[in-house]
Amino acid sequence: MYKFVIKRILFLIPTILGVTLIIYAVMNITPGNPGQAILGTGVSQEDIDAYNEKLGYNDPFLQKYVRYVKNMIFDQDFGISYVTKQDAFTEILPRYLITLKLAFLGVFLSAIIGIPLGIKAAVEQYKLWDTIPSIIAFLLAAVPAFVLGLVMLFVFCGWLNVLPSYGIGSFKHYIMPALAIAIPPAAQNFRFTKSSMLESIRQDYVRTARAKGVPEKQVIWKHVLKNALLPVITQVGLSLGTLICGAVVAEEMFSIPGVGSLIVERINYKDEPVIIAGTILIAICFTLVMLIVDVAYAYVDPRIRAKYTKSRK
């Protein structure tokens, strides 16, 4: 098992190198440059070129890439932002933690709303606990996060004035943005859990359990749930990726100083160090989460575990 984990962590290295290369390549191809974006109109072309030259922006992109990677590995230096001239890593880290907080809160909410309702709907199939949440989920799965955010903004903030519209001062500030990004995945989780449950309930071993005299509640909780939740775990882990992206929208709308909005902002300035550092951090987070999901899966499902451990008694 440990070998498997170590191998996956080692995979992070080519991932990071790849991400960096891709971003540099893309930045190289797309139009625009920091000088122009920062200095704006009213500055001559020479001055813009001089500015870019000073930043090291005009070097060929492979050279920039190699330089960046070298700095990253040997000096743990993620570069200086072209825009604010601050150390990219220092600039990003606090914002990154905020986005993570938001994204994880979103994952948590989407799981806690979607999964229990999904279980309930499967157990009470065709009855009220099934039909009403199903209809709502059907509608909400299609509503984009920013629409939800806007509606919540107007209702809770403009009309009722019970929640703040910007910032990150207290827990209150996280509620709306977290809900906004959590609701579409929650609807997905609901439908996915329900179908997984229904499939598990049909399995023969459930009939065996009932034939043993296991009370119905225990049949669900002990026999069905463990099997049904396996694919749901993977789904929830994957949704973290969606949520980190969704967090960008929420960050913009609710003025949350997260890394998503930072990256988007800096793309216009072609602030390569910040963009790369931010993206790498997100990639690391995502990879680690998928690793945890896989390990959890193996932990719960003995058939998968056997594949990884390959130990015979």
């Binding site: 071993y205 009939r207 034939a211 005299g213 296991v214 099997n227 003995p302």
Partner: peptide, 20 residues
């Protein structure tokens, strides 16, 4: 009564047991 006074053995053993 089930499993205690009256027990049942089903047809397909491959899926009759809970895999986890």
């Amino acid at each position: 009564i089930r499993g205690n006074l009256v027990s049942m053995v089903f047809q397909d053993p491959m899926s009759a047991l809970n895999p986890v």
